[in-house]
Amino acid sequence: MNTLDYVILFGSMLAIAAYAVWNTRGRRDLSGYLKGSGQATWLTIGLSVMATQASAITFLSTPGQGYESGLGFVQNYFGAPIALIVISVVFLPIYRRLKVYTAYEYLGHRFDSKTRLLGAGLFLLQRGLGAGITIYAPAIVLSTVMGWRLDATIVCSGLLVVAYTVAGGCDAVSLTQKYQIGVIFAGMVAAFFVLLVRLPPGLTFSDALTIAGGFHKMEAVDFSLNMDRRYTVWTGVLGGMFLALSYFGTDQSQVQRYLSGASIRESRLGLMFNAVFKIPMQFFMLLLGVLIFVFYQFERPPVYFNRTVWKAQAEQATDGGLKALDGEFTAAHAAERAQVEAWVAARHAGNRQAEAQARDGASLAHERIEEVRAKTRAALDLASPGTKANDADYVFITFILDHLPHGLIGLLVTAFFAAALSSKAGELNALGSTTTVDVYRHLVRREASDGHYVVASKVFTAFWGLVAIGFALFANLAENLIQAVNILGSIFYGVVLGLFLVAFFLKRVGGTAVFWSALAAQALVFALYATQSISYLWYNVIGCVACMVFSVILQGILGLGGRPTPAAP
């Protein structure tokens, strides 16, 4: 990064935040602070929903995932369009009709106070614990490759997002998200075009995709019914639909975005915007990674993309093992490159036999490359146990720093920070409003002025922001903590969705039955997690279905002695 890059980074981040704070100054009413001024158009909502979901890790890691395992990950998003239609038809009209601030408030309307607190509590536990990761994950990658101090990176980006989220509330969040996502899209499109220009002359786009296909990077869909496969169309459609239903339908950080719409029409169109653009966006990010893979067939990549870790270990090691492996990697890459060039030449000459021969040769050479990479990873693990960082996270940023011109480097690093801040702001805004509406106003102080609750919201938002910064600073000491929080996040979702689906569709079930059924279903999910190894997407399906089935059974038993709570009108 040079001076121009830093000017772009600090200039755009501060300007966007300052503009949002200035534009939303003087908000005194609770509805305006928590739900915005109620004038959001479908485009603002659509971009806001997208920006809240897409964190920095989406943009840093997804190309790395494309580089390593190809396009298959796109299938995980196949359930999203269907889920967003269900939310648009079922969830949204009910939330708007009851004029709720939070999704959990609806559970209070439909069931009772304890079920509302269970929903809000699970959200606060899950998002509150995970609050630091949104900041920590990009900070660790960017500080490592830039040589910045990790703690300073976390504190600066954390305080900036807390400042404008606390000052401007919901409107400031959606206003900043609109400009931040503009920066993100500009950065990604610029990186894509530079990458296309940097491919060797004479190599057509079709050649590039053929090479990627030869290394099994183009397997975008897998219709097999094998449950052991990591990504298939069926896990994507069914598991992905349940995950998207619970995330977009019951996670306050998303619900708050589309409740700010000027009308139900604007909210619906905002959700449909995401239903249409979610899959192409993920496909584009994965394709970027696949093309980086093709680019590195002709340019020697680092043997280990996190070069900071590699250099530190190579200089410390006395046996020179890592440097010897680096030499082996250079030779293996040269052999692979020769085969790939022969393959492209044969393809252009129309010589099918030579093409097949060179393609097989390239595959063999690639196996050798993977072997050297695996040995390098093992040597690094041995030298510094506990550094289980995913090297794929460093692929895209390495490409950017090595092959993009100054100015564009600044734009891309700004895009990563914009993505981190935009999703963090959505989360903090939701944590603050859920704490205010579902806990403070519901349990602690029921009758107070709007101004009082706005101040309370600001205090709670700042509190969660500081928790996030503290957690991110602490996370550096315990990588396993991050793993644990990520797992916790993915195994609560199913049961929360179960609560809402019972509320919408099982009108005979009351609060007591659903409350205890949710706890039993969560215990079942924990037990399965401890004893089985299935894709995390299936925990959501199991948790949700178990919650619904248990509710019906328990209501049947309770129904003999008492009446169920009436459904909301």
């Binding site: 796109v74 239609i85 995709l209 296909g213 397997e219 975008a220 169109l269 249409v276 899959i279 192409p280």
Partner: peptide, 28 residues
């Protein structure tokens, strides 16, 4: 009508799955 919007969204989704299937078959 909203039914038309949802139908359109499903059609676009189906088109994407078809395109991705075609890509997988063309470049395998």
């Amino acid at each position: 009508k909203w039914g038309g919007v949802y139908g359109l969204v499903i059609a676009i989704f189906a088109a994407w799955v078809s395109l991705l299937t075609l890509l997988s078959l063309l470049f395998r």
